[in-house]
């Protein structure tokens, strides 16, 4: 459905996007993951025709966005990073404007009603956009992208700045839309894309460093786990005991939160579940566990891992050296 080939975008001597190629198949939800400034928005802006590329091609359903911008733009619904809302309009007026702007031919009343129902904004249709909360604005932005029923949806950081409840709502909405649309969504938060995407493309400094099915990426990321454990007991002895547990690679004390109890970060070896031995080792000595949780990897950790894995694939011999040098 979407084919991006050798896409380059240069600003002066700086490469915002440096030779990116990937495909998105029909009906897929693809997560576009990367830290701020990695080139996510630039790529999506080129895909939607807002920016031009320095070189490379982008095709949507076989149509080149540079050669036939009108045909390509009709196939794409776009939610930019900042929803493009005219705040002095009412929701209904705004959606009507978008309907006319896209020269939509579907039944107007019915289509707008459907879009509002899908995005759950039916109850605010008569309100001024400037009076809406951030969550509602985001949903009006999504509604705008759905008008005309384009087969491809592009969402640039759809959940940024929303509260956890709204994030879950938007996530569900994206998942539902994925049933009959091809969706690309970008994010700088790993769990965000893990939750909805079938496939994840990871980008850093303008280059793709991983393009994997979500399950595969999860495997890479979760190979060695980090636990945050709160233990009641004398710090030095607890640390000594922890490092003796088979499978523990590293244990650090992080801080004292309550009297006598400390939080420790414990990293386990690949594929070893240390939770049971941890429990028994501590209970033997009479140090209760007050809390235990798995800590997700930060995006930086993921990048380091992925880049390692990448180097591993290319030069198996050097991988160890690369890791040691880190």
């Amino acid at each position: 459905m979407i084919e991006i080939e050798h896409l380059v975008k240069r600003y002066g001597s700086k490469f915002a996007v440096d030779d990116i190629s990937f495909r998105v198949n029909r009906g897929e939800i693809v997560g576009f993951l990367g830290p701020n400034g990695a080139g996510k928005s630039t790529t999506l802006n080129i895909l939607t025709g807002y920016l031009s590329s320095t070189s490379g091609t982008v095709r949507v359903s076989g149509i080149d966005v540079l050669d036939s911008p009108y045909e390509a733009k009709r196939l794409i619904g776009f939610l930019p990073e900042q929803p493009p809302l005219y705040v002095d309009m009412k929701v209904d007026e705004y959606l009507g404007f978008i309907y006319e702007l896209k020269r939509c031919t579907l039944n107007r009343e019915k289509h707008l009603k459907e879009v509002c129902e899908v995005t759950k904004i039916s109850d605010v249709r008569g309100r001024m956009i400037k009076n809406l909360s951030k969550g509602y604005r985001q949903r009006v932005g999504i509604a705008q992208s759905l008008i005309g029923n384009p087969p491809v949806l592009v969402f640039d950081e759809p959940t940024v700045g929303l509260d956890p409840k709204q994030i879950i709502e938007i996530r569900n909405l994206v998942r539902n839309l994925g049933a009959d649309h091809t969706v690309i969504l970008s994010s700088h938060i790993l769990p965000e894309v893990q939750a909805v995407a079938d496939r994840i493309v990871v980008i850093n400094q303008g280059r793709i460093i991983a393009d994997e099915k979500t399950e595969n990426l999860n495997r890479v990321v979760e190979e060695d786990r980090l636990y945050s454990v709160k233990i009641c007991g004398p710090q030095r002895e607890v640390l000594a005991a922890l490092s003796k547990i088979p499978g523990v690679v590293r244990a650090d004390a992080v801080g004292e939160r309550e009297l006598d109890s400390f939080t420790y970060h414990i990293q386990s070896e690949q594929g070893v579940d240390i939770r049971k031995p941890l429990f028994f080792a501590l209970s033997e000595r009479g140090w209760p566990i007050l809390g235990l949780e798995a800590v997700g990897m930060s995006l930086e950790d993921v990048f380091i891992k992925l880049m390692d894995a990448d180097a591993n694939k290319k030069r198996p011999g050097d991988a160890k050296a690369a890791r040691a040098g880190r």
């Binding site: 025709g49 911008p69 009108y70 045909e71 930019p80 493009p84 005219y86 978008i98």
Partner: peptide, 14 residues
Amino acid sequence: RTRTEQVLLTAPVS
């Protein structure tokens, strides 16, 4: 300033 131009420039209008 409000980035609303993005909706115009990505719509099928010249």
